[in-house]
Design a protein around this nucleic acid. Structure first.
Lengths: 101, 101
DNA sequence: TGCAATTTGTCAGATTATCTGACATAGTTT
DNA sequence: AAACTATGTCAGATAATCTGACAAATTGCA
């Protein structure tokens, strides 16, 4: 695993890096937007990727989005991506219609 | 700064990642082999680069090196690199002797 | 050979970091 | 108006980390 996705960052550093409060960070987890790992004792551990994710979420909230909207939109997007992927696979497998060039 | 050199990792994770004891990690710092940052409260924060460094140090110690030897050897090596760098700069600036090709 | 240095373990006591759960609140939806 | 959303804050508990000290095994060296 690469540095960006390894879960090694504690809550204190996360709040420093993101500018968010502990409350916010925990709330976003409660709502299913980030998924930290835990130490044996129960402390949260985040990755750099998680940190970027948190900033992205916070930005959208500042823009007036609500958490459920963010999740909903992403659910649709990834569904579309799955569709596009499958469509692409079908196209290259069966070539049901002409491709350009 | 990149993920590899950002100091965000606490002692607990460092001991997990390196397999070293807290005692060892602190001792290597005391001897000037790693240079963690600190939180406001005084807790150490390491980078992935530091983690790799610690493993490298531990490996050499297992091979029978002593800390002072490691530091001494590196002092010489970096001195040589400085010399090589300067020599290279002089060569390209003044071309005091013919180069091959 | 004997003494000093090196490296690591361990322990105590103190301090810092983080956790959960609860209540409050301002703003937004329904 | 009532319910919901997002966040602040506080208390009490637990986890994580720190420093400083003493011990001990091994190794270097005078």
């Amino acid at each position: 695993m690469d540095y960006k996705s390894k879960k090694v960052i504690g809550m204190g550093v996360v709040t420093e890096l993101t500018g968010l409060s502990e409350r916010q960070v925990r709330y976003y987890e409660e709502k299913g937007l980030v998924f930290p790992e835990r130490t044996k004792g129960g402390s949260r551990k985040y990755s750099f990727h998680d940190v970027e994710r948190l900033v992205e979420v916070a930005t959208k909230l500042e823009d007036g989005w609500r958490i459920q909207d963010i999740k909903e939109r992403e659910r649709r997007l990834s569904a579309k991506q799955r569709d596009d992927l499958i469509r692409g696979q079908l196209n290259s497998a069966f070539r049901t219609f002409p491709t350009k060039k």
